[in-house]
Amino acid sequence: MDERTILYLALSVLIAVITMISAAKFGIIGIAIAIISAVAIGIMLLLAFADFIIFPLFTKALNITIIPSKDYMIPKSQDAVIKYSNGIYYATGYLTANIYNYVFAQEQVQEESAALAQAPGKWEKAMMNIHFPFRYSVIAAAEEIQRYREELEAKRGLLEFQYSRETQGSNPNTMGLETMQRQMNVIQARIDRIGEGEKPVNSMMYIESTAVGISEKEALDKLTSQLNDLSTVFNIFDLSINRVIGRELYRLHNINYRVPTLSELESEFGVQK
């Protein structure tokens, strides 16, 4: 979660906490206010952490469709962008394809080299198994090397401090120490790679597929089947694949016409470094 979301959440929750505290003197009505305040806090937390659950519920309940531009429509289920043209429905859906897990789980340069050597072959095999249109996109921007290095060194310093404090404690947590050690190794590996001349990159990856049908339902059903197939095929790349539902759908649809700036990417999607 980024700093802006934390600020929004903190101030919104503060209001709910004030109403909850001030409700104490009103007896039964006060209890009702406290319950509503607790529900409101729950909704705010959902909006901050899992808005992809609450937003489609809201659009389904109110039967709302969104028209992002002429000829396009986002249905109330918020899982596809539909275009009706020449008597055919075109449904486009998106999958996240993050290598985030991979980078953190195996920050070993040697293993990464082996994975890189296998990548073109794996890619060709994947392509041979796909028989419908799709796009695999990587949005990337090079990072300011000095700034990135300083950020990494600051993170490493903080972890080293936490590690030494934990080891000096009376009852050190072995699991926690191992995790911290692993995180320090990851950061050190990144610092070393920058030293070897590698450029740090901000990136975001996603998969897009379009299905056709003579009815909206047919197109949406085919799209779901296509996205499931793509998830299976791209599993060989050790990606974290999830179907995009909710507000990010509209943002991803717009990327086809305009690549967002880095600050927009960080604010809307949370890019990976």
């Binding site: 009505i29 305040s37 705010m44 808005d51």
Partner: peptide
């Protein structure tokens, strides 16, 4: 107080939803 609280909470939820 109940009505005012409901208005305050609705404004708080709307403020949070302004984020995205």
């Amino acid at each position: 107080a109940f009505v005012f609280s409901v208005i305050a909470l609705a404004a708080a939820i709307l403020a949070m939803s302004m984020r995205y």
